[in-house]
């Protein structure tokens, strides 16, 4: 009986300790890494308030950053808000309606993110992870904009004399284990994995 009580007391103690450590961690992160613009309400209202965030189909690259913003903002919303600004000044939907012009391209997007990173640096603050201006956000934007080196492999490959599936996999992907996916992607051409003829065009699956 006493053992049981001691055990449950110990369990409660550990749980309480973990909770204390956890809240201390978030508080620390909240006070150091928080940029003044990082409020959930403002971010959400901005992303919801801009027409392109609503109107664009969710798969277009323009819409995806907003989705990422929202998800990250929600994930980070648990962070305590030490900003003394009372909730009455929380902004309503942003009045800045940005009409789409000719400048809406990847270059403008990259320029904006780079500018924000510089502004945050100059302002002596580091944006919370994942929010605009942070390194993570920049990386996410870069990868979403499709300018990252995601296109490692070309779309098709012309079989050369003496090629084998494993050889092609090694040559294209640097990974001999890709010969399986390569065969699967070309089953309309190849009866067997060694059924290669010079001049065949193999379609290359994504790694």
């Amino acid at each position: 009986m006493i053992r049981m009580v001691l055990l449950s007391l110990a369990f409660l103690g550990v749980t309480a300790a973990l909770l204390v450590v956890q809240s201390g961690y978030t508080e620390r992160r909240g006070s150091e890494g928080r940029a003044p613009e990082v409020t959930r309400a403002s971010l959400l209202s901005e992303t919801v308030g801009t027409p392109e965030a609503r109107d664009t189909a969710p798969v277009t690259p323009e819409a995806m950053p907003s989705d990422v913003d929202r998800i990250v903002a929600q994930a980070l919303a648990a962070t305590p808000e030490p900003e003394p600004v009372p909730p009455t000044v929380l902004p309503e939907a942003s009045p800045v309606l940005s009409p789409r012009g000719d400048l809406d391209d990847d270059a403008l997007r990259q320029m904006t993110w780079a500018t924000m990173a510089r502004l945050n640096e100059a302002a002596g603050r580091s944006a919370a992870p994942g929010l605009p201006g942070s390194l993570l956000h920049t990386i996410v934007q870069r990868s979403l904009s499709g300018q990252a080196a995601s296109k490692v492999a070309p779309e098709t490959y012309e079989v050369q004399p003496g090629d084998s599936l494993a050889g092609i996999a090694k040559k294209i992907y640097g990974d001999i284990n890709m010969s399986g996916p390569l065969f699967a992607a070309n089953q309309q051409l190849l009866q067997r994995p060694d059924d290669l003829k010079a001049g065949q065009r193999l379609s290359l699956p994504r790694q």
Binding site: E37, E46, V96, R100, G101, T112, T115, L119
Partner: peptide, 25 residues
């Protein structure tokens, strides 16, 4: 802060304004 990023045609301008300390309006 390049001038094109400040124009209304930049769909990410509100983010930029946040970095300048604005909170919505």
């Amino acid at each position: 802060v390049p001038e094109p990023t400040l124009q209304g045609s930049n769909p990410y301008r509100s983010d930029l304004l946040s970095a300048l300390g604005a909170r919505g309006s």
